[in-house]
Design a binder for these strands. Structure first.
Lengths: 341, 341
DNA sequence: CTGTTAGCGCCTTCAC
DNA sequence: GTGAAGGCGCTAACAG
């Protein structure tokens, strides 16, 4: 049995409340008494039970981090930022994986609520109603969502403008002279923001390029999905000369597959991804991609969350812009294009 | 204010203990009463406060996961396995990053202890004394360590036989005809297991190859560190024909650097890594590497931990063997070698 | 079957 | 300055 404050008090020959005072440094205690208590603490190797403390104080100093898949390097980088920012402020983080399933998300969030987390960083809400409702509760956790959607959800929203990111990526391909651009798209369904698709479409439209629906194939954001999708897309004739993929994982798989069947990247097929996960920058991969400010996203969200906890703060909506990182996978100029780079 | 069991009891017109019974499904309750309580629960949208429950039951149903760097894809894969296994058993996981610093590790673990986690999966203990001592405490958390060291630490130990992994990797290079094999080593210092170095050395010795200390340069396991190390190693003349690196991140950087300065991989320089993180298998990288059973490690550790929690179990020591995954970065045969593959 | 009664470990008035 | 007492939300005997 670990020592409790009671043991400390007894050993120091003081009342529990006095022991509490010196441990928490609150209220007046004579130097002499303080010394006695501190001595007792040391002797018993006493650690305050923060469960009990939380029960009393209604604050657990912990926050939940809800992500689709912590095994995905993209989320893991965000998680790293969150953990660091949280630790620096004395908070700890409870990790919940949703695997992209609404049910798991609900259960996970329920768990976090039961564990009385002070706040939740939610990336990203499949079930936005749940998030919205939760953030309405008076004594519920503060909810910060990170999302590619436009609509704010929760107490605070960190919005990554995916639409513009995708738009810029496709624009870049168009400037390079591409006119048949395939798209390995985000999955369909209400739980997935369709902003990247919108950006892709808008770019084509503004350039007055036709939209060929058979060049748009849904991916699943997972390993294996990019391969399936690119296969599908490359059944089209004439072949597209460029591919935009809704995330890097799928983009890299597209490159792999293209090379396997004898296409050269970028000469025969230019590829642009989305996210800028670490591997995108490796030599041998060199993926041009839309970089999401992963670290900032995690850090911003955490800081915002914790500062809200410390004092009331109006709901905030922050937009972060992704940026296009040009590497080699898109080529610098398409053969026969009039545009020089 | 969130609803408490008291509110539920009042609304259902029963005693608190009765409400508790139906909520926890313990003891006999008449169907009629049960229905009333359930109705009340629904009406108030009641969620049990697990903080309070934990205080009473001495069990928080949460476990700590201590890793060096969750942003590192290697750890993030282990974390994924841990989270999943934990969730399946109704446990949640508190994430602690050490960034490889002893102080952060201590603070993080203190935090976990204060938060009364039931167990800690510790990968990997820099300060093994801390781990050992903690696992001795009667009412302390169950400690499962994952480590490349031989010595058991904590309640249970999952040992990855790094020495054999490294040994096999270097053996492979030797079989391919290499005799000057550089090593981008693990960092020095008591907090880092030196098993991979041992394996490297043993392999050379058994093959009766000379050990050239200037071909062994310490890395830091981080991004950037492989680059620095390979630079150093390649100052040697004659150049080594092969490089073994203590992890994939550094191995990949070595490949990048080698290519930048005009060396072909694997023709001029064969490279073997350690870990088998996702990117190792990508086309364009194709890194031959010692695969650690990441998923098994996380899962095994978690299951072991939780089963211990449920009923006393003797301390266990499990050894998992890594396996060599041969891809292209090591070449199939060294020019001029007599060994065919 | 159901209600009453003690706490779990801690913090926080409120007296002295 | 210090102590006594109440209660956070919940569970677990123990009576009825």
């Amino acid at each position: 049995m670990a020592a409790t404050i009671k043991d400390v008090a007894k050993l120091a020959n003081v009342a529990i409340s006095t022991a509490s005072r010196v441990i928490n440094n609150s209220g007046y205690v004579s130097d002499e008494t303080r010394a006695r208590v501190e001595q007792a603490v040391k002797e018993l190797d006493y650690t305050p039970n923060s469960i009990a403390r939380s029960l009393k104080q209604k604050s657990t100093y912990s926050l939940g981090l809800v992500v689709t898949d912590i095994g995905n390097p993209f989320f893991s980088e965000v998680a790293q930022a969150v953990e660091r920012a949280a630790r620096e402020q004395g908070y700890s983080v409870l990790l919940v994986n949703t695997d992209g399933k609404a049910e798991q998300e609900r259960d996970g969030v329920d768990l976090l609520v039961a564990k009385q987390v002070d706040g939740i960083i939610w990336y990203s809400p499949i079930n936005s109603k749940l998030a919205e409702e939760l953030s309405q509760r008076k004594s519920g956790p503060v909810i910060v969502t990170i999302t590619g959607r436009r609509e704010p959800i929760g107490t605070h929203t960190i919005h990554i403008n995916d639409e513009i990111g995708a738009f810029e990526a496709v624009n870049h391909l168009i400037r390079l002279g591409h006119t048949r651009i395939g798209y390995i798209a985000e999955p369909e369904g209400p739980e997935y923001p369709q902003e990247r698709l919108h950006g892709y479409l808008r770019s084509l439209q503004e350039a007055k390029l036709p939209v060929d629906r058979s060049l748009i194939v849904r991916g699943d954001y997972q390993q294996g999905g990019g391969r399936k999708a690119i296969k599908e897309i490359l059944k089209n004739r004439p072949l597209p000369t460029a591919i935009f993929a809704a995330n890097d994982l799928m983009a890299v798989e597209a490159i792999q597959y293209a090379r396997e069947i004898g296409l050269e990247v970028p000469q025969d097929l230019a590829v642009v991804g989305f996210d800028d996960i670490m591997l995108a920058g490796l030599r041998g991969i060199d993926l041009t991609t839309v970089a999401q400010p992963k670290y900032e996203m995690g850090q911003e969200a955490t800081k915002l969350l914790i500062s809200t906890l410390k004092k009331e703060k109006a709901s905030r909506y922050i937009t972060l812009l992704p940026s296009l990182v040009i590497r080699r996978s898109c080529g610098y100029r398409l053969k026969g294009s009039a545009v020089s780079w």
